[in-house]
C-alpha cells in the first residue's frame, strides 16, 4: 500500500488512486499502432552534439557532390513558409567561381538586413558581461557588500565578525559557499 498524504485516508485512498490513474483509461485518440522510437530521450548536450555532427556531414557531402543547386538569390527575404526551404548556404555557393561574387554580395546583404544569421539554440545565449557592475563583490556568507577576500578560503566577506566565522568553518562548507558563486574547484 502506498503511503498516504493528508488529502486522503486509509479507506478511500485506493479508490482515489483508481480514479486518478490514467493508465487504465481507454485513450481512443491514440494511434494503436504507434511505436515510439527507441532511445528518443536525449538531453540538450546530446542533441546539440548530434546536430553539429549532422550539419558537418551534410556540408561535406554537398561540397563534394557538385550537383546540389544553390538557392536562388534573395531567398532570405521571403519567408520560407511559402515554399522554398533554406537560407543561403554561403560556403557552398562560394565553391563555384561564378557564384563567388554572388556569395560576397549576399553576405553583405545579410549583414545589412535585420535577419542576420539564423538564430540557433546555442547562439542566442547571452555573452559574458563586460560591464563593471559584474565586478561587484558580495559577501559569500551574508550577501552584503564585501570589501575583503580571505586568501586562505578565497571567500569574500563583509566584516571581521564574518571573518571569524569563516575561519572556523570546515573545508566542505567553504567549498559549498564557493560553489554557490560558481567559484569552487571542480576536480575532473
Amino acid at each position: 500500500m502506498a503511503p498516504l498524504t493528508t488529502a486522503s485516508d486509509e479507506s478511500n485512498h485506493q479508490a482515489l488512486l483508481n480514479k486518478l490513474d490514467i493508465y487504465a483509461i481507454r485513450k481512443p485518440f491514440r494511434n494503436p499502432h504507434w511505436k515510439p522510437p527507441q532511445r528518443r530521450n536525449k538531453n540538450v548536450k546530446q542533441i546539440i552534439a548530434d546536430a553539429a555532427r549532422k550539419e558537418s556531414s551534410v556540408m561535406a557531402s554537398q561540397t563534394n557532390s557538385g550537383v546540389a543547386t544553390p538557392n536562388q538569390q534573395g531567398s532570405e527575404a521571403v519567408t520560407p513558409a511559402n515554399g522554398s526551404g533554406r537560407p543561403l548556404n554561403i560556403a557552398q555557393a562560394e565553391q563555384r567561381l561564378s557564384t563567388l561574387v554572388l556569395g560576397k554580395n549576399s553576405r553583405a546583404a545579410m549583414a545589412a538586413t535585420t535577419t542576420g544569421p539564423a538564430a540557433t539554440y546555442t547562439n542566442i545565449e547571452s555573452a559574458p558581461s563586460f560591464h563593471p557592475s559584474s565586478q561587484r563583490r558580495y559577501c559569500d556568507i551574508t550577501g552584503l557588500p564585501a570589501p575583503y577576500t580571505d586568501p586562505k578560503t578565497r571567500l569574500r566577506y563583509h566584516d571581521k565578525e564574518i571573518f571569524g566565522l569563516l575561519r572556523t568553518m570546515p573545508q566542505g562548507t567553504t567549498e559549498g559557499y564557493l560553489a554557490a558563486r560558481g567559484a569552487h574547484t571542480v576536480l575532473k
Binding site: 558581461s129 558563486r181 560558481g182
Partner: peptide, 12 residues
C-alpha cells in the same frame, strides 16, 4: 540583473 552573483557567466 547581475548573473555573476550566482556564478552565471552571462550579462544581466
Amino acid at each position: 540583473f547581475q548573473p555573476s552573483i550566482s556564478g552565471l557567466d552571462q550579462a544581466g
